[in-house]
Amino acid sequence: MNRWPDPDHALQALARIVSGCEGVQIAMLASRDGRPFVWRSAVAGDSGKLAAMTSSLTALGRTVLRELNAGELDHLLVEGQDGKLVLVGVPGLDGLLVLAVLAERRARLGLVLGHARMCVRALAPGA
């Protein structure tokens, strides 16, 4: 049984990342099969495409770890010259939702990852 979080509650959690972590441009919750659930953004973007890519990357990450006997996926980091993307699953939902955070180059990775972890913990059942 899928247990979707309350959308308003989720939006508030996303808003805290976008406003509270310097350099974060987009925060989104995507379903595991690649559809946007909720989305907060400081810039224009294609939520549908990001949701699909979030789903694919997460599934590939899990598959690679499984093939390598490297355990469960904790997070994914894709870093380029002009930005970085952090993907973290929401715990306790059987992989139902993945948080995607896109940040500028200047954003500090540790802070982005820390805010992302706080966000998904806040969305976990019973939080």
Binding site: A59, L60, T63, L96
Partner: peptide
């Protein structure tokens, strides 16, 4: 086969339990 199946969360779930999301 290397698969990337996840459980469906939309109407597709009525026809099949899981779907490929990467390859």
């Amino acid at each position: 086969p290397v698969t990337t199946d996840v459980g469906c969360t939309d109407d597709l779930a009525r026809r099949k339990a899981s779907t490929t999301v990467a390859l």
